[in-house]
Amino acid sequence: MNKVDLSNYNNTLSRKNQIARLLWSVVWMVFARPLPRRIGNSWKLMLLRLFGAKVHAKAVVYSSVKIYAPWNLEMHEYSCLAPEVDCYNVAKVTIGAHATVSQKSYLCTASHDVTVSNNPLIIAPIVLKGQSWVGAAAYIGMGVTIGQGAVVGATASVYKDIEPWAIVGGNPAKFIKKRVIND
């Protein structure tokens, strides 16, 4: 069997970062995950703030959400991380006012540089502008900005920025039509 040479691999995340994430994981698992759906939202927001998140008092975070690094999370008023969202925020994730990330979606701010033999970690932020909506089980890749009012259809995979008020879907996500609000 071939052995993998890890001697050239340097984890770019500090030991302090790793310890903070471990502590965070334990705190969330013990003090937030057991809470019933939407119960104790202000308590969960307080826990997030204790670990450096910038979350508006009117933001909503479900108990089953997985947040990798709360210090890299910013949520504005009436933004929502729905049940079982996986927020892998090695880099910053910003969720604008009235923006929703639906259940089982995956926000991924990190990957590996496959053009280098030791595949070093690479990161880039994700921004969801106000009034945007990420449908159920969608994937949002690193460095992506979802424009204001844009809609990402369920199960779509987004690797490039989405224009404001666009509706996209598929893998990779493609433009479907413009979003029109009829109030």
Rank of each mutant, 00 (worst) to 15 (best):
S111E: 06
I140R: 06
V144K: 06
T100H: 13
S111A: 12
H112E: 05
L107C: 07
S105G: 03
V144A: 08
Y139Q: 08
P120M: 00
Q148V: 09
I140Q: 04
A150N: 00
G141K: 11
A156S: 15
N118I: 05
Q103E: 15
V114M: 15
G149I: 11
A137V: 07
T109G: 03
C108G: 10
V151C: 01
T155E: 11
T100R: 09
H98D: 13
C108L: 15
V134Q: 02
N119F: 10
V114K: 06
T155R: 15
Q148N: 01
G149N: 04
S117D: 08
T94Y: 13
G96F: 10
T109Q: 00
S132W: 04
T115E: 11
T155L: 06
S102F: 12
H112M: 07
Q103W: 12
W133P: 13
V151Q: 05
K129R: 10
V114L: 06
V134P: 01
T109C: 07
G143I: 02
A124D: 00
V144M: 06
G147L: 05
V114F: 06
A99I: 09
V134N: 04
D113G: 08
A154T: 15
Y139V: 13
V158N: 00
S117Y: 15
S102Y: 07
Y106S: 06
V116W: 10
L107I: 10
V127E: 01
G141M: 08
A110W: 11
A137H: 02
A97E: 05
Q131A: 14
G141E: 02
A150R: 10
V116K: 12
Q103I: 13
A110K: 01
L121S: 02
Q103D: 03
G141V: 10
V144F: 01
G143N: 10
Q103A: 14
I123L: 12
C108Q: 15
V127K: 06
H98G: 04
T100D: 02
L121G: 06
S111L: 07
I95M: 05
V152C: 07
I126K: 00
T109H: 04
C108W: 08
W133C: 07
L107Y: 10
G153M: 03
A137N: 13
Q131E: 14
D113N: 00
G147C: 01
G153C: 08
Q131M: 14
S157E: 03
A138S: 03
I126R: 08
W133F: 05
S111N: 01
T145N: 04
T155F: 11
V114R: 04
V134D: 01
I122H: 02
I146W: 00
G147T: 13
I140F: 08
T94A: 10
V116L: 09
Y159C: 11
A154N: 03
T109S: 12
H112C: 08
A110P: 13
Y139P: 12
T100W: 05
T115C: 09
K104I: 01
K160G: 15
I95P: 06
S111Q: 04
Q103H: 09
L121P: 05
G149D: 05
G149Q: 10
G147H: 02
I122D: 04
V144P: 02
T109I: 10
V127W: 06
I122C: 12
T145D: 13
C108S: 08
A136G: 09
A110R: 12
L121A: 10
I146C: 02
S117P: 14
V134E: 00
K129T: 14
S105K: 03
G143L: 00
D113T: 05
I146F: 00
